[in-house]
């Protein structure tokens, strides 16, 4: 089971990175959203132990590690905010340069 999880997270990272490495900035944004998800899963798998029950103080059986959950919760919100801003940038760039090709977006470098 673990190998399947690990492989899937790896595949998600690879896809997201591939999207970001291409010249299409819209797909790069999609890649960004994808990699945020993948990173959250990655964080989860760094948790110390797995649980049978959710992390409530009323739980009887082994609970799942609450710390990565809290961190991921924060991460989800931050990446959503960041992603919205990236979309705004995409729009501004596309109106100013009339393109979604990152190689044609010059003049931001300097």
């Amino acid at each position: 089971m673990n190998i399947l999880t690990a492989l899937t997270i790896g595949i998600l990272f690879a896809i997201a990175m591939y999207q970001m490495l291409r010249r299409n900035v819209i797909r790069a944004a999609i890649g960004l959203a994808l990699i945020s998800n993948a990173i959250n899963l990655y964080l989860f798998s760094m948790g110390a132990y797995n649980g049978v029950e959710a992390a409530y103080s009323t739980a009887i059986a082994q609970i799942s590690d609450p710390l990565p959950q809290a961190l991921v919760l924060t991460a989800i919100v931050i990446s959503a905010g960041g992603f919205a801003f990236v979309l705004g940038l995409l729009y501004v760039v596309s109106t100013r340069y009339k393109t979604s090709d990152s190689d044609e977006i010059e003049g931001l470098k300097h």
Partner: peptide, 26 residues
Amino acid sequence: AGLLGLVVAWTTFTALELRPRQSLVS
């Protein structure tokens, strides 16, 4: 991208296989 995926998969797998371990804060 594939290289990154492989490395991520490898580290994730290592982390998952080593569960459960002692958590300091949880």
